[in-house]
Structure formats: C-alpha cells, structure tokens
C-alpha cells in the first residue's frame, strides 16, 4: 500500500514536470506550427549550464538559477533568430528538420563542454522526506510539482489575458491576417521560443534535482513528446492532464512490471502510449480540432 502510494505521488510529480517541458513544445506548435524536436536537448543543455554555474563556477544558488533563465531566454532568441527566421515562408518540413539539427548541435556542444557523463546539482530543497500517509516521499517531488503548476498557471493567464498572449494565439490561426492587424509575427515566434526554452530549463533543473544530470535528460524531452501527443499538440490543459497520466503510467508500470517483464519497460511505456493514442485519437485528448462550420 505504502509502495503504491509512493509510486502514485512521485509519478504525478514527475509527470507535472514532463507537462511543463511539454508546454515548450505546445507553445511553439501553437504559434508557428513548427514541431520543436530539440526539446530534449534544450532540457539537457540548460541543466548542464546550471551545473556549470553552481558547481564549476561556484555561484550562489539564486544567481545561478537567474543566469539559467537568462541563458534560456538568450538560447530561445538565438535559435529563432539565426536558424528559423531565415526559413520563414519555406516548407514547414524544412523548419522542423532544422529544429532536429539544432538539437543535435546542442547535444554535441554539451558533450564538448562537459565530457563527464554524470553530475548532480547541489540540494536546493530541504532533505527531510515528507510522510504522506504510509508513504515516504522526498521533498524534491512536491516542490517540482508545485513549481510546475505555478508556472503553468502563469503561462495560462498570460495567454488568456495578455495582449501579446492573445496575439500569439491569433498567429496560430492565421499568420497573414495577424500581420494585417499590425502584429509583428517575427517577435511572436521569437517570444514563443524564449518561453519554450525557459520552461525546458526550469523543467530540466527540477528533473535534475530529482534524478541527477545525465545524457538521459534528452529522453525526458522524448517523454514530453508523448505528453504532448496524448494531450493534443496545441493544448495547455492537455499537457497538464496528460503529464501526470504519463508519469503515473511510467511509474506504476515500471514498479510493477519490471519484475515480470524485465528492466527497461519503464522507459518504453510512454512510447507505447504514443502509438496507442495516435491510433485511437489522433488529435489527442484536448487537441484543437479543425473548426468546420456546418
């Protein structure tokens, strides 16, 4: 019983972080219908960057985190400015391929700068575990879930009420019409990449605090893909619902199936879910269907 509860709590918490990272995909898809295939590498590079600032340079925690955010914003800006903007009005497939290229470039950059394969961030949250009923959960999980939820709330409000947020959603609907309204689409795209990199960075730091920094972080990005696909490519709510589902499935499946099927099943589960969802519900749980007036 205690074991089950523990799987559930940690599964949901990790799932929330997946959901946060998945927002980095949904944001870009929503405003420019480009699939951001560099998601995992964005998570990877920002986690290593935080490690570099905190451990190698030895900065205090808050400055290190602040610098990570600044780094993420800069990264997002430069990806959009230097690789995607020259390709505006080109076939969408070229743009998607470019994000793949950016991903591999970043991965290469990381292994060039930080050849060590494993590292750990210093503890940020108190070490004492929390007792939830019979289960014992370390505090990192709860903080990760809380921070993800808070960031998700902030972004949702931004998109619902802020002028720029509304303009970003409008861009997703009709790029030409939005320009006729005087909205600079280039800054919309650039902003969506900045947001995407920031959520990937925060998600990356949260995941690294739980599981350490390895090259496996790229897979965290891949797991976020399954979140996006399950939730519907462009839906925020979809991400936030699908995240915990994937996290739970991964944890419960990993916990109870490993003795039966063998290790490794945990990492396959999200991808099994992708395939099932694609077959049954191609728009995902909350995806925007094309509006057809009848």
């Amino acid at each position: 019983m205690a074991e089950l509860l523990q799987y559930v709590v940690t599964g949901i918490a990790v799932g929330m972080v997946y959901a946060l990272i998945a927002l980095g995909f949904a944001l870009i898809w929503k405003s420019s219908s480009v699939a951001n295939l560099a998601l995992g590498q964005l998570v990877l590079i920002s986690s290593w960057f935080t490690y570099g600032m905190l451990v190698q340079v030895g900065l205090p925690y808050w400055i290190g985190l602040l610098l990570t955010i600044v780094f993420a914003v800069f990264l997002g800006w430069s990806i959009e400015r230097f690789t995607l903007r020259p390709l505006i009005a080109q076939p969408i497939l070229s743009l998607i391929t470019v994000t793949l290229g950016v991903g591999y470039f970043l991965e290469g950059l990381v292994s060039f700068i930080w050849p060590t394969s494993v590292a750990a961030l210093p503890h940020l949250f108190p070490k004492e575990p929390v007792h939830i009923g019979p289960a014992v959960v370390s505090q990192e999980y709860l903080w990760a879930a809380g921070i993800s939820l808070a960031l998700f709330g902030m972004l949702s409000l931004f998109f619902k009420y802020h002028k720029m947020g509304i303009a970003m959603r409008a861009t997703a609907d009709d790029q030409l019409a939005v320009q006729a309204c005087g909205v600079p689409v280039t800054s919309v795209f650039s902003m969506s990449w900045m947001f995407a990199c920031v959520v990937a960075a925060v998600g990356g730091v949260l995941i690294s605090l739980i599981g350490g920094i390895t090259y496996g972080l790229v897979e965290t990005g891949l797991k976020s893909f399954s979140v996006v696909i399950l939730g519907g490519l462009d839906s925020f709510i979809g991400c936030m619902v699908a995240g915990p589902i994937i996290g739970l499935a991964e944890n419960l499946g990993g916990g109870y199936l490993t003795p039966i099927i063998g290790p490794g099943i945990k990492d396959i589960i999200p991808f099994i879910i992708i395939i099932i969802v694609m077959v049954i519900k191609p728009f995902g749980l909350f995806g925007e269907e094309r509006i057809e007036r009848i």
Partner: peptide, 9 residues
C-alpha cells in the same frame, strides 16, 4: 478578403 477571423479566439 475571405473573412479571415481567428477561428479559435
């Protein structure tokens, strides 16, 4: 031309 509203807004 062609009533280009932002359909999902």
């Amino acid at each position: 031309e062609g009533r280009r509203v932002f359909g999902h807004l």
